[in-house]
Nucleic acid binder design. Structure first.
Lengths: 236, 236
DNA sequence: AATATTAAATGTCAAAACAACTATTAATAT
DNA sequence: ATATTAATAGTTGTTTTGACATTTAATATT
């Protein structure tokens, strides 16, 4: 059949906001852009969508190129379509955020993109509208994590309660009472306590836990409430 | 400066899922598609993005063409990019949902699109992946309305509590205890009671209320809880 | 061997929020 | 005057919440 006539066609890109957690702070993975314009400036990892691939496919491809990882938590955020957002040529960009276990990445460094982890707070200036995209991704992760257990995706398979609490405290830049935190955590029944302890952080050691994958998937949509008054903490 | 070379360009469309409320049930506005392929089949209202307009701009244009309305609540949902979603030519579609006061629309019928309101439950089969889009929009509106006061956008400026409750009950297909409903509603301080009554629905009549626009905007991000256990009602 | 050190783990209580529930009131129709 | 219909208001028992301090486990030190 014929093509649609008299319509303009555009470039379509995906850009990934990759989050990791180093035990202390939330970080994002940025690259030095390898081509003009804005060559060697800091940028999100992205790429043009190819003729035969879906958006999710493109995002996964880009992410695997950068990190070597597959099966990563990846979620579409939104499409950016300002006509002038790319000075060379009009390009629609669909953003995704990725949550990865930062330690898995560190074993896979591929230097070709000059990728670097930055603390969310002091990330460098980014090209085009990527700074705006990062801000939106930050809001999205805060919003979503206030209600759903996505932050587990940032931790290793085995993790401790103090690690988890640090993560929540950093994401929301707040202090959480750990007795209340544990109570709410326990109520979800999402965690399975392991016999082993992590003794790197203290003399006493903290028990490792793992996710109950089945319950995690079954109750993913259930509204959580780990963070008291989350709406007060989510900037708008 | 040069264009990006060796990259494929695609058509970009926006599609609008337009919701309205007739006092009883949630409805969506569909049109009979005016061109091939799938001419005369039911479809979402959409259009190709033009070279000089943004995505939001395109969505607003399309919506105004269809309804004659401007300044409507419009929110981007997601981008659909399956390579085969349009059989003629690969087209990326960015969906938006719109919430309109159905009565405003009825005064503005433009017949050129053969638009018709359908009950959400018995909407006809739609072209391409539009059915999937509608399902996603339904989930989105349920999810969002469980937390934020967007459903007011479906009502006229003056509305009664029973109207509002009907709306919530229909959206979540559930029964709500109206004393508890009113108590929660009152707690938000979003409503201003008017002196006038709507006597069309009953002998006693129900007071009209209007939104406190200032508080509505100021507290839009605050998490509401009009619906007990909303997560149990939001299908996933 | 005893003691100091460090961070993890644990429990209680009062206040608030919540869901469930029935009786009264306002307005009209008969 | 009375019957009818739907809106409106209050109570109670239960659950959830936030605030708060001490004990415990393991190691390091003397």
């Amino acid at each position: 059949m014929k093509k649609y006539t008299d319509q303009t066609r555009f470039l379509i890109a995906v850009d990934c906001i990759v989050f990791g957690f180093d035990g202390e702070h939330l970080k994002i993975l940025l690259i030095k852009r390898g081509f003009e314009p804005e060559k060697d400036k800091w940028s999100l990892m992205g790429g043009f969508v190819r003729p035969e691939e879906s958006l999710d496919g493109a995002a996964n491809r880009v992410l695997t190129q950068l990190t070597g990882l597959e099966g990563v938590y990846l979620e579409q955020i939104q499409a950016y379509g300002d006509p002038l957002r790319d000075p060379i040529e009009r390009t629609l960009s669909v953003t995704y955020f990725a949550l990865i276990d930062i330690h898995k990445y560190e074993t896979q460094i591929s230097d070709q993109y000059h990728a670097e982890w930055f603390l969310l707070k002091d990330a460098p200036e980014l090209i085009f509208d990527h700074g705006e995209m990062v801000e939106a991704a930050k809001k999205k992760i805060r919003y979503k994590a206030a209600l759903h257990p996505i932050l587990f995706e940032l931790l290793p398979k085995k993790f401790t309660i103090p690690q988890l609490q640090n993560l929540y405290e950093d994401v929301y830049n707040t202090q959480i009472d750990n007795r209340n935190f544990i109570r709410k955590l326990t109520a979800t029944k999402l965690l399975i306590k392991l016999a082993e302890k992590d003794k790197s952080g203290s003399k006493k050691g903290a028990f490792y836990f793992k996710l109950d994958k089945k319950k995690y998937k079954a109750n993913f949509q259930a509204f959580l409430n780990f963070i008291p008054n989350p709406d007060k903490l989510i900037s708008v």
